[in-house]
Amino acid sequence: MTPALPRRVAPSTPRVRSVLPGVRLTLGFTLAYLLFLVIIPLSTLFVRTARLGWGGFLEAATTPRAIAAYRLSVGASVTAALVNGVFGLLVAWVLTRYRFTGKSIADALVDLPFALPTAVAGVALTTLYSQNGLIGALFAPHGIKIAFTPLGITVALTFIGLPFVVRSVQPVLETLPKEIEEVAATLGADRWQTFRRVILPALAPALVAGVSLSFARAIGEYGSVVFISGNMPGRTEIAPLLIMSKLEQYDYSGATAIAVVMLLLSAVILISAGLLQRRAAKRAV
């Protein structure tokens, strides 16, 4: 962790080592900053888990309440990510391929979930989707309750995840060479076939990346969900909420055990998405 890390030595290139000043200083600052603000805080989770021991960890991490929370979190996040995969692709397509009035407003609006604080999104969505809210009132007569049910949780998670898919797919769609579509057309493919067989495979890696980012965001989301979920243990309590309620009872070990399970879960998802992405990229070439 000393600032005097050896700089890259590559004798074959003329740029052997940096002649620029301040590298040691900035590197030292960067390492210290990361050490104190990222590495040490995150390592506490694993130290705490180690102190629990394997038995203690399993006991804390696999209570029926915790299992119900994982199931709900994963289920709602997967559903939300898939919905975003479909609509994110549609929005990205429309924004890159067509001209229409209000396009730049629509384009800016895509980033709203990034810019709107989650607590504000949470209270706004709850108001909209509760039984006498603007949207909730449309569904209530049909016996469909959205707010305070798993459906409401999925709605909130879909809201916050949309930009990830759009912003992953959009740049790829923009740079997709028009020629491949022309070739497909001259070979007699109709538009749908061209989309399915030519465009979609080329977009697949970006789409997978966007969907998995959307999932990763959803699985850890708290602010926009806490209001709409109703927080009933075992029924509408997602994992981040369970961590929160453990913390409120000063049960730090229980909170840590669940947090570690969540981190491992999202690591597994992100890694497998990475592998899937690579496979899709290979197939697209």
Partner: peptide, 10 residues
């Protein structure tokens, strides 16, 4: 990549 709640927990 870390849930805000987990960040707070750390």
């Amino acid at each position: 990549a870390v849930s805000p709640v987990i960040a707070g927990l750390t």
